[in-house]
Computed example of a mutant assay.
Amino acid sequence: MSDSMLVCVSDYWQRCHYLNRPDREAGDSCRNGKTLRRLLLQVDAINGNYYLREILQQTVLVDRLKRIHGVQLVWLQFHPPERDTIDYKWADMLAHTLWEHIEVEHLMSWLSTLGGGFSALGEQFGKCAETAGKISLQQLKIGMRLGDPFLQARCKLYYSISLIQRGHLRPAKHLIRAQYSFARQHVETDGRLVRMCQGIWLRLRYEYEQRRIQKQKRLK
């Protein structure tokens, strides 16, 4: 038998759920019809959850059960607790997390509206394009805090628009290509990213073409 302890959790309806079950090919004794020496613990589900965590995580405890007491199987028989308990600490943490997420989503909406306005003005005014870029970077920071890679990709694309408007075509090109590669890998999850990359790329090509035409005029 492997070093891990075989554990069986029997729920309220006496359905058995096995953990650390060895593979069939391992030839373990529990697969060969042999009787395993087991430790039966009849506990309520709340305490049983702590028992289960200790058995699965504490290697010293498992080693003592196996080596000193010869236990091969821990059988946890759960029954309903006498009184349901409320985890107020976890509830407070969850409420705070949800509230923070709602506030961040609200902030992102305002930043998107504000950034879109400055981006539109950035077509004519360089300062507005620069401000739009700063807003995109703030959105990127929020996306990194939320751990949302798709939101981060969209913010980087918004920032690339600001780079194009300010004439920084080369860094914008590398940024768009990187996000396009990411979007192609996750097209089934968010197909909008591919279309965003393609649209901004067309804008980049237009700016390169305009720059080429201006260069030819100067040479003439």
Score class of each variant (00 low, 15 high):
69 H>M: 04
60 V>D: 07
78 F>A: 01
79 H>I: 09
100 E>D: 08
92 D>G: 10
80 P>M: 01
100 E>C: 02
88 Y>G: 10
47 N>V: 08
72 Q>L: 00
80 P>L: 00
62 V>Y: 12
61 L>C: 05
83 R>F: 06
85 T>N: 09
76 L>Y: 01
88 Y>M: 09
68 I>E: 06
73 L>P: 00
46 I>S: 01
59 T>F: 04
72 Q>T: 00
90 W>H: 14
53 R>Q: 08
54 E>I: 00
64 R>D: 12
74 V>Y: 02
44 D>G: 10
48 G>M: 07
53 R>P: 08
95 A>M: 11
71 V>F: 01
63 D>Y: 08
41 L>Q: 12
87 D>M: 05
89 K>C: 06
103 E>K: 08
102 I>D: 14
73 L>R: 00
96 H>C: 08
58 Q>G: 12
72 Q>D: 01
104 V>W: 11
88 Y>W: 14
60 V>W: 10
42 Q>Y: 02
103 E>L: 11
102 I>Q: 15
56 L>E: 08
102 I>L: 03
56 L>P: 07
87 D>L: 10
56 L>W: 06
49 N>T: 01
63 D>W: 06
57 Q>W: 02
83 R>P: 00
82 E>F: 03
101 H>V: 01
87 D>W: 01
47 N>F: 04
99 W>G: 02
77 Q>P: 00
56 L>G: 02
98 L>Q: 15
63 D>L: 07
63 D>T: 13
47 N>Y: 06
83 R>Q: 07
44 D>I: 02
75 W>E: 13
67 R>I: 07
47 N>I: 10
61 L>D: 08
96 H>Y: 12
93 M>H: 15
62 V>M: 12
98 L>P: 06
57 Q>H: 14
88 Y>T: 15
62 V>G: 06
105 E>K: 13
55 I>Y: 03
93 M>T: 14
81 P>S: 07
58 Q>E: 06
84 D>E: 04
92 D>E: 15
58 Q>K: 15
98 L>H: 08
103 E>M: 09
69 H>N: 02
69 H>A: 09
84 D>N: 05
79 H>W: 06
84 D>Q: 09
46 I>P: 02
92 D>L: 15
94 L>Q: 07
